[in-house]
């Protein structure tokens, strides 16, 4: 989203220091070099300006603009010293980028010398607008990659990096029967939790569909039961269990559109006989066991790895 990117960049302009983005390998020129040689120096190094050093001391800045001005003035050749900018805006290595950005704006200059805070004539590097932009872009990219890695890791923690002979994270939800007002709330909580654990969106969606249908069945047909999601390194198991009344004919119940739901349930948009078929369609392995008067246990398995890399 563009808005968060801008905020992020603004934040970075405050956080990042000049030293992180400046160029340390600086091409410099001595003040006694004649103006006529400047063009060659700039061209050769593909730069549009450079600091002027007298021995080790920074004495000014000379740029292509100064050169053009010199040409336009048709002045005689002379040392760079005579045409360079002497009153310099400078920055220190530990200044935040925002300060440099302000100085670029105020001075209209294309580059700022970076000097030692205690000795303003000691040149440490040069900072151009290009350096600032490039530095920000790199940082954004690094942040983005780290974010990706972090998200990847979270998923890994639960699905691949777990080191044990047997590992499982179990999320259990108690579903009340006949309480239509709350129906679906457990699946909603399960879905949010899976998201936070970093499970890929495609897998989350499939689990959510199955869980929602299973929860509806518990609410509509039973006096209550439990919904459990068992997260293992390779598989996510969704289990719905209740203690009655049981399904008389499982083959029929699996037939799309077969329904024993009362009309009031249908009028609420459910009971169209798509529950079990939907669950079966969304998972990788489907098992159901039911005994009349005893209850039903449904297990839907989702294989993690195939869906694992769709984190996006």
């Amino acid at each position: 989203m563009p808005s968060t990117r801008i905020t992020k960049t603004q934040e970075m302009v405050y956080e990042m220091k000049v030293g992180e983005v400046m160029t340390r390998q600086v091409i410099t020129v001595r003040p006694d070099v004649p103006m006529s040689r400047l063009r060659g120096i700039l061209r050769q190094n593909r730069i549009s300006g450079l600091p002027v050093l007298d021995g080790q001391r920074l004495v000014g800045l000379i740029s292509l603009e100064d050169f053009i001005k010199w040409l336009a003035d048709r002045a005689e050749d002379g040392p760079i010293r005579q045409r360079m900018t002497q009153h310099l805006e400078k920055v220190s290595e530990d200044d935040p980028l925002v300060l440099a950005v302000g100085k670029f704006d105020k001075s209209g200059l294309g580059r700022l010398p970076v000097v030692d805070r205690n000795d303003p004539t000691k040149l440490l590097g040069i900072l151009t607008k290009g350096d600032v932009i490039e530095g920000l872009l790199k940082k954004l990219e690094i942040d983005y990659q780290q974010e990706q890695i972090r998200r990847h890791r979270t998923a890994h923690v639960f699905f691949e990096d777990v080191q044990a002979d047997r590992t499982a994270l179990v999320l259990q939800y108690d579903v009340k029967g006949q309480d239509f007002g709350q129906a679906g709330a457990s699946s909603s909580r399960l879905k949010q939790t899976l998201h936070r654990l970093g499970v890929g969106p495609n897998l989350v969606r499939r689990v959510a569909i199955a869980s929602f249908e299973a929860e509806m069945n518990l609410v509509v047909f039973t006096s209550g039961g439990t919904l459990r999601a068992k997260i293992q390194p390779e598989t996510l198991l969704l289990e719905a269990a209740d203690s009655g009344p049981g399904i008389a004919d499982i083959a029929c119940a699996l037939e799309p559109g077969y329904s024993t739901a009362p009309d009031w349930v249908r009028e609420l948009g459910f009971g169209a006989g798509m529950g079990l078929p939907n669950i079966r369609k969304s998972c990788d392995r489907f098992e159901i066991d039911s005994a009349l008067g005893k209850g039903t246990r449904l297990t839907a398995s989702f294989f993690v790895n195939e869906n694992f890399h769709d984190i996006s």
């Binding site: 559109g257 249908r266 009028e267 948009g269 169209a272």
Partner: peptide, 25 residues
């Protein structure tokens, strides 16, 4: 519509009824 009560209330003679409901009602 998939809601029988809604069709009972609002369906008009000569309408083609589009639905997912396939049961006998």
């Amino acid at each position: 519509s998939d809601l029988l009560s809604d069709v009972i209330a609002n369906g008009r003679p000569g309408d083609l009824w589009i639905t997912l409901q396939k049961h006998v009602n």
